[in-house]
Every structure is written in C-alpha cells, then in structure tokens.
C-alpha cells in the first residue's frame, strides 16, 4: 500500500480510459451539433457552414417562446422526481441490502417489475386512472409517472450501497459516545453519500430525458424540453434543434464528469469504503 504522495504521482489507467471514452463517445459526435447551432446555412459538400448566425440562440433566449418555460418545467419535474426517488430509495434499498426477511424476493420482483414490463403498457393503464382522478395533464401526474422507472433504479443502486455497508460502524460510533442522531449524520450519511449522489444523478437524467411518459400523462399540456426538442426536430430546423439539444445535453455532460470522478474512486472525501 503506497502513501498519498506516491499515489498522486502515478497515472490511474482506469481514469484515463474513462476520460478517453467520454471524449470519443460523447464530445466528438457533438461537434457537428455545436457547429449547426451557430449556423444559418450548411449544405452537404462544404466542410463549414456558408453562413453563421445566432438566430437559434436568440430564439431560445426570447421569453415569448416556449423554450425557457419548458426548460423550467423539465427542471422542476426532474428535481422533484430525484428528491422523491432518494427519499423512497434509501429506506427501501437499506431494507433490501442489509436485512433478510420473509418475502424479500417477492418484494425485489415487485420493485423491479416496472423495469421488466414496458413502461408504455403501465402508463396506458395509468392514464385511464389519472384521467379519472384528475392527475392527467398536470405536472404532479407527470412527476408521479416519472417515478415508475426512477424508484426501482434508485432502490437497486442503494441496495448495492447498503449490501457493502457494515452496520458495526454505527455501533462503533455509539460506543464512542455519539447519539443515534449524530451517528446518522456523521457516520451513516457520509458512508452512503456517494451512492446517493450517483443514484440521484441517474434518476435526474432518466426523468430529464423522458418523452413517452410525459406525452401520455402530460397530454401535451405539460411541455418539457424533450417534447419541444422532438417537435423542432420534426420541423427540420437543424440550427434550433442543435441549439436545443446542447441545452438538453448539458446536465448529462456535467453529471457524467462528476460520476466519472466518483467511479474512479480515489477522490478523497467520497472514497466511500472502497479504499479500506
């Protein structure tokens, strides 16, 4: 086992591969889009656009268009979905990861079932119910339907975190004089925090990128960024579509970079128990 100083000097091959993967798989394919977003005319044989323009960005920044309001909608929905998934996923994941109880496998199956059964099939049925109870065409309805894929995801990723969690750490803290409250905030939470962050970010992305579920329950009233993007893509306005997709991709890219830091694991405070 090396010291901290030695470790900083060596290049972690895993980290290099992750970054290389991001560049080749994500950034390079985005370059044409980046160019499109600032062009007015870009016909096939030419390597660069014949005319540059800020038109797409002016359209996006204009408060009279739906772009800003739908981005806001997307944000509100994705943040709410993430928060609820975390709140449900932590206790559920803890139960599945740490305890053995009767009917555990049945409960696992029920939690997994939304990701086994096509979401569309479930949503069709839910739509009928939502119309009846008045949740159809509302933002709340959309948030609820987005939870179908995110809660299983969050629960499974939290159960993985808790399966590796040693409850003796809590006992150790108690025996050193920490109250149960302090033990939770100083010991339990920091230990599972990387798992919560990673799971939460993916829940955010699932909700942020949701199209079908939003259309079915939102009924065209609740407009989110993917809905807007789809309609512009259909209209053939490449410049605007490209500009919108850049905004749409922004959270994914930010999250990808943050998680790659978590996943390559040695970053001090968030090392979790991986380095024990």
């Amino acid at each position: 086992m090396g010291t901290a100083i030695e470790r900083k000097k060596t290049i972690n091959p895993l980290r290099v591969m992750i970054y290389l993967g991001i560049v080749v798989g994500v950034i390079i394919p985005m370059i044409p889009q980046l160019i499109w977003a600032f062009s007015h005319r870009w016909l096939f044989p030419s390597v660069t656009p014949s005319e540059w323009s800020m038109r797409a960005w002016e359209y996006i920044a204009n408060p009279n268009t739906k772009v800003l309001s739908s981005t806001l909608n997307s944000l509100i929905i994705a943040v709410s979905v993430t928060a609820i998934s975390i709140l449900v996923g932590i206790p559920a994941g803890k139960a599945l990861g740490m305890y053995k109880f009767r009917g555990k496998s049945v409960i696992e199956l029920i939690i997994l079932s939304p990701s086994i059964i096509p979401g569309l099939a479930v949503t069709m049925g839910m739509q009928v119910i939502f119309i009846r109870i008045g949740l159809s065409d509302t933002m709340l309805g959309v948030i609820i339907v987005h939870l179908i894929p995110t809660i299983p995801y969050m629960t499974i990723s939290m159960s993985g975190v808790f399966a590796n969690y040693d409850p003796a750490f809590e006992e150790q803290a108690r025996s050193l004089g920490a109250s149960s409250m302090k033990t939770f905030f100083l010991i339990t939470l920091p230990t599972v925090f990387p798992g919560i962050v990673t799971g939460g970010m993916f829940a955010f992305l699932i909700s942020w990128g949701q199209y079908i579920l939003t259309v079915m329950i939102g009924g065209g009233r609740v407009i989110t960024l993917p809905l807007l993007l789809f309609s512009f893509a259909g209209s053939g306005d490449f410049a605007l579509t490209s500009a919108l997709s850049i905004i749409f991709l922004l959270p994914s890219i930010i999250i990808l970079f943050i998680t790659s830091k978590f996943l390559s694991g040695k970053s001090s405070a968030m090392g979790g128990f991986g380095n024990l």
């Binding site: 150790q172 025996s175 050193l176 405070a269 128990f273």
Partner: peptide, 20 residues
C-alpha cells in the same frame, strides 16, 4: 443506559476506522 452514556468503548476486530 444507552450505549453512548455507558463509558464503555468497544474496539472491533476489523478496527472500523471511519474511512473518510
């Protein structure tokens, strides 16, 4: 008496140093 009030400290076999 709660464990944190007993003034009894346990040292575990696998040390359980808080890793972060």
């Amino acid at each position: 008496v709660k464990p944190e009030k007993r003034e009894v400290v346990m040292v575990y076999q696998n040390y359980l140093l808080f890793p972060y």
